[in-house]
Write a protein that binds this DNA or RNA. Structure first.
Length: 611
RNA sequence: GGUUCGUUGGUGUAGUGGCUAACAUACCGGAUUGUCGAUCCGGCGCAACGGGUUCGAUUCCCGUACGAACCGCCA
C-alpha cells in the first residue's frame, strides 16, 4: 500500500496514529539537524518532520523539489501551528521514507504565484497543472459539469453520444476535416456542434437529450475561443420558447447554487434584441451597470420608440454630427472632473484601430450646472443643456458622444460603455447578472467583396421564425430588388424564435425553436440561396427525417468552457482547460499539429501541394 | 488576412548608442533544532534569428520566427 491517507486530510484527531503518505516534495526546509518537508498531492500539503536519525539517509539519498516521496511515521501535534494549511495543526514525525521517483529541476516554480510565463507553463502544462491556481479551475470545471448533469438527469434528460466523424457542411464556420483511408479522396468533418444529430434524436422520440460534448471549429482563436471546445448541448420535444427558457434558467441557477453557493432567486431578465441594440449597442449587454445609450440620431428602429432623427443636434453647423448616419451618447456618472489629459486619453482609446472612430465629443456637466464641451464653438449652453437632458445626465456626469456609420458607431459606443464601466469599477467580478436576449432577426444581410448580397441565417438554418412571422416568410420571395434597400425587405423584419443567455456581457448559451415542417425548412433553404438539390445533398437525412413525423422541438447549447471561466472570474478560457491550444491553434506541449509520415500520405492517397 | 505590444541568466523583470548589463527568484555549496514565502553567507548563469544605420547596436531601423491581445472571421 502506497498510502493510508492523502496529504489534505489529517487533523488533530488523528494524533498519534501511524500513517503513510505519498506525494510530491513541495519544499525542503533544513533547520540544523532536523528537516521539514512539505509533501503535496491533489488534496493538500502535509508537513513532514525528519529528525536527526534520518540525516544519514538524507545525505545518501538527497531529496529535491518535485521528487515523488513516500513517508511513514506518526501524526503529532505541531508546536507551531500553521493556520494557512488545512493540515496545519499536525505534522508527521517520519520514521522512514522511500524516494519513489526523482525529478529534474522544474523550469519554473510549482507555486501559486509561479515565476513561469504563459509560454513556458503551456509547454510544461503537466507541471503547471500541479499548481493550486490551475487545479482550482479544473475542480470548478468538474463542479459545473456535475451540477449540470445532476440537474438534467433529474429533469429526465438522457445523455446520448453523437458521432465525431461526420459529413462536412460548408455552412457557418470552417470544418476540421479528417481524411478517410478506406474511402480515398473523401473526408469526414468534425462536428461544429451535434446540431443535426440532436434534431434527429427528437424525430426518434428521445424527447429530452443532453450531452457535454466537444465541438470543433477551424476559425481564428481568441482568449475565449479554442478550436476544440465543450458545449452543454440540449434539445427537447413538444416545447415552446417559454418552456426552454424556464428549463435552462433553472439549470444555470442550479449551477450557481451548487458551484458558487449563490441563490439566484430573482427571475432572469429578458430583453428583445432590438432593445439590447438600442440601449446598449450590443446583443449581449452587461447589465451589471446602467449607463444606457442615448440615440441622438440613428437609422435603427425600435418598436414603440421613435427613430432618432438628429433634430436635437442638427442645424448647429457641426459637420461631424450633421453628416453622420448615427450619433450616440453615454453619460458617465461622476466623471465630469476628468482632466483634459484623461479625456484625451479616452479619445485616443476610441481612435485605436480596433475601435476605429475618428474622434470623440465630450460634454462635462459641471456640479454647478454649467457645461463645458469640446464643441462649444457649435453648441451654446441651452443646446448643451438640452442634449444633457436627453441623455438624462446629472451634474457631475461626463457625456461621451460618438458619431459615424451606424454599425461601427454602435459597436464603438458599446465598447466604450464597457470600458468606462470597467474604469469606474462597475463590472464586479463577484456579481452575476443573467439576461435572456430574445427576438433576434432571423436573417442577416451579408455582403462579401465582389459578390451580390444575400440572406444568411443569423443563428442556423434550422431556426424557426416567430409563429407570427411564418406567413411573412412563406408568402414573400427572398429576392431583394435593390441592394441598398434590403432593410425595407419583409425578410429584414422577420424575428427568429431564438434566444441567447447572457451572463455579465458574455454570451454563455444560445438556441432556438427549430423548424419541424418540411415546407418551411425548404423555404428557409430557398431564402439562403440553397437550391433544392444542394439542400438535399447537404441535409437530405434531416429533410428525410422530417417526412416521418417530426415533433415540434427546440434546444440550446451552452459554452461550457466560457461559463466556467466566468464563474471562475477569468477572461480566458485556457485556464479552465487542462490542455489548451495557443493563439495559433497549436498545442505547444505536443508540438501539434505536425507533419505526418510519407507512408501515411501514401495510404491516404494524398499529395501535398503547399503554396 | 490585418493591427498593436513583446522576445535580456533556468524563470520573471530592470536599465543603457560605449566601461564588469542590474534586481528578484530558482539552482549549487556552507551555517542553522521549530520552520512553513524560513533566515544568513558564498557561488553559477543572460541579449530569438537575419540584415541595415553607426567608429561602436542588447539599445535605433527593416525583415523573419515565436508569443500575447484585438479587428476581420467564429451559421
Amino acid at each position: 500500500m502506497y498510502r493510508t491517507h492523502t496529504c489534505g486530510e489529517l487533523r488533530l484527531t488523528d494524533v498519534p496514529n501511524e500513517v503513510t503518505l505519498a506525494g510530491w516534495v513541495q519544499t525542503i526546509r533544513k533547520f540544523g539537524s532536523i528537516t521539514f518537508i512539505d509533501l503535496r498531492d491533489r488534496y493538500g500539503i502535509t508537513q513532514l518532520l525528519l529528525g536527526e536519525e534520518l540525516n544519514k539517509k538524507l545525505d545518501d539519498q538527497p531529496l529535491g523539489r518535485e521528487f515523488v516521496l513516500q513517508a511513514s511515521g506518526t501524526v503529532q501535534e505541531r508546536s507551531n501551528k500553521n493556520p494557512q494549511l488545512s493540515t496545519g495543526d499536525i505534522e508527521i514525525r517520519v520514521k522512514d521514507f522511500t524516494i519513489l521517483n526523482r525529478s529534474a529541476v522544474p523550469p519554473f516554480t510549482i507555486q501559486d504565484d509561479t515565476d513561469g510565463g504563459d509560454d513556458l507553463r503551456m509547454k510544461y502544462r503537466y507541471l503547471d497543472l500541479r499548481r493550486n491556481a490551475v487545479k482550482r479551475n479544473l475542480e470548478l470545471r468538474y463542479a459545473v459539469n456535475r451540477a449540470a448533469r445532476n440537474y438534467l438527469h433529474e429533469k429526465g434528460f438522457m445523455d446520448l453520444e453523437t458521432p465525431f466523424l461526420i459529413r462536412s457542411t460548408p455552412e457557418g464556420a470552417r470544418d476540421f476535416v479528417v481524411p478517410s483511408r478506406m474511402n480515398p479522396g473523401q473526408f469526414y468533418a468534425l462536428p461544429q456542434s451535434p446540431q443535426t444529430f440532436k434534431q434527429l434524436l427528437m424525430v426518434s422520440g428521445y424527447d429530452r437529450y443532453y450531452q457535454i460534448v466537444k465541438c470543433f471549429r477551424d476559425e481564428d482563436l481568441r482568449a475565449d475561443r479554442q478550436p476544440e471546445f465543450t458545449q452543454i448541448d440540449c434539445e427537447m420535444c413538444f416545447v415552446e420558447q417559454e418552456d426552454i427558457l424556464r428549463m435552462f434558467e433553472g439549470m444555470i441557477k442550479a449551477i450557481f447554487k451548487d458551484v458558487k453557493g449563490i441563490d439566484y432567486t430573482e427571475p432572469v431578465e429578458r430583453m428583445s434584441w432590438e432593445e439590447a441594440m438600442w440601449n446598449y449597442g450590443n446583443d449581449k449587454p452587461d447589465i451589471r451597470f446602467d449607463m444606457k445609450l442615448t440615440n441622438l440620431k440613428s437609422p435603427l428602429k425600435k418598436e414603440g420608440v421613435q427613430r432618432a432623427t438628429g433634430e436635437l443636434i442638427g442645424g448647429a453647423g457641426f459637420g461631424v454630427f450633421d453628416n453622420a448616419e448615427t450619433v450616440v451618447a453615454i453619460a458617465v456618472p461622476g466623471a465630469s472632473e476628468y482632466t483634459r489629459k484623461q479625456t484625451d486619453e479616452i479619445t485616443d482609446w476610441v481612435k485605436r484601430p480596433q475601435i476605429g472612430m475618428q474622434g470623440l465629443v465630450t460634454i462635462k456637466c459641471n456640479a454647478d450646472g454649467s457645461f463645458k464641451s469640446s464643441v462649444d464653438k457649435f453648441y451654446g449652453p441651452e443646446k448643451l443643456q438640452a442634449i444633457a437632458a436627453s441623455c438624462e445626465a446629472k451634474p457631475g456626469d461626463l457625456i461621451l458622444i460618438l458619431a459615424g456609420r451606424e454599425e461601427r458607431t454602435r459597436k464603438a459606443i458599446s465598447e466604450l460603455r464597457l470600458e468606462m464601466g470597467e474604469r469606474l469599477g462597475m463590472r464586479k467580478k463577484d456579481e452575476f447578472r443573467l439576461l435572456w436576449v430574445l427576438d433576434f432577426p432571423l436573417f442577416e444581410w451579408a455582403e462579401e467583396e465582389g459578390q451580390p448580397g444575400r440572406w444568411v441565417a443569423r443563428h442556423h438554418p434550422f431556426t424557426s421564425p416567430k409563429p407570427s412571422d411564418i406567413d411573412t416568410m412563406i408568402s414573400n420571395s427572398p429576392q431583394v430588388a435593390n441592394q441598398e434597400e434590403y432593410l425595407q425587405h419583409p425578410y429584414a423584419g422577420i424575428k427568429a424564435n431564438a434566444y441567447d443567455m447572457v451572463l455579465n456581457g458574455n454570451e454563455i448559451g444560445g438556441g432556438s425553436i427549430r423548424i419541424f415542417q418540411r415546407d418551411l425548412q425548404e423555404k428557409m433553404f430557398d431564402a439562403l440561396g440553397m437550391s433544392r438539390e444542394e439542400a438535399r445533398h447537404k441535409f437530405g437525412f434531416l429533410l428525410g427525417a422530417f417526412e416521418y413525423g417530426a415533433p415540434p422541438h427546440g434546444g440550446i447549447a451552452f459554452g461550457f468552457d466560457r461559463l466556467c471561466a466566468i464563474l471562475g472570474g477569468s477572461e480566458s478560457i485556457r485556464d479552465f482547460i487542462a490542455f489548451p491550444k495557443n493563439n495559433s491553434g497549436r498545442d505547444v506541449m505536443l508540438d501539434a499539429p505536425s507533419t505526418i509520415d510519407a507512408h501515411q500520405f501514401s495510404e491516404l492517397q494524398i499529395k501535398l501541394d503547399l503554396k
